[in-house]
Amino acid sequence: MPDAPAIAFQDVSRRYAGKAAVDAVSLSIPAGQFVAVVGASGSGKTTLLKTVNRLTEPDDGQVLVEGRDVAGEDPVGLRRRIGYVFQGVGLFPHMSVAENIAITPRLLGWSTEDIDARVDALLSLVSLPLDYRRRLPDQLSGGERQRVGVARALAARPGILLMDEPFGALDPVTREALGLATRSLHEKLGLTTLMVTHDVQEAVILADRIIVMAQGRVLADDAPRALLAGHPDPVVAALMDTPARQARAISALMEAG
């Protein structure tokens, strides 16, 4: 199936204690697209993302990756094929930067030379100096750790990259730089990227397509430009208006000055 979407959610639901965290979500993400999922905290973004590599199993519905139902796949193999950047990074504190980046290739049994070359390539890809190889995660700044997290996710050359608030807790300058770097990696490597964020502005700047979630449901799904132009749902409209509202507030301030 050459035209199969990279990721497809078909009526996916996941409940915790009877309450739906993800509620009958259907989406189709074609290969090569950069999709941002936005929504308030607790709206089900992380849960939806985790159903893709089976860190969470849906109660109902199906998730297809490259046309195949993930429920029928070995979760370990599936996860090694899909890059995942965790909310809060989740680097292994007892492993060096190089060991963290090399983990999936090592699990896949790559040769030492291939792994070494790959680690060097990834360090330069995420703009980290090569002499960072031996450092431990707690010897890095927050932004450097996020870069290592992205490098780790990309190490085994996945076609799909899942990112869960990858740039949370960073200063705005670093955040913007890292976001743009990721977008260019997406282009360069021909990835399909699904990124969760609660920052609408970031989503607007980086993504081809924005999905707005609330209480486990998809409220809106469109290109950033279209959503910025207005939306019948007041929640979506208010959310998408935040960047513009902030811009207006800033220019008012500048004029007053």
């Binding site: 860190l55 599936l78 995942y84 989740g90 292994f92």
Partner: peptide
Amino acid sequence: DPAVREAADGVGMTPRQ
């Protein structure tokens, strides 16, 4: 840390690994 444990799952480790 549960986040580290989840990361181990996420990078594709078997329970034994």
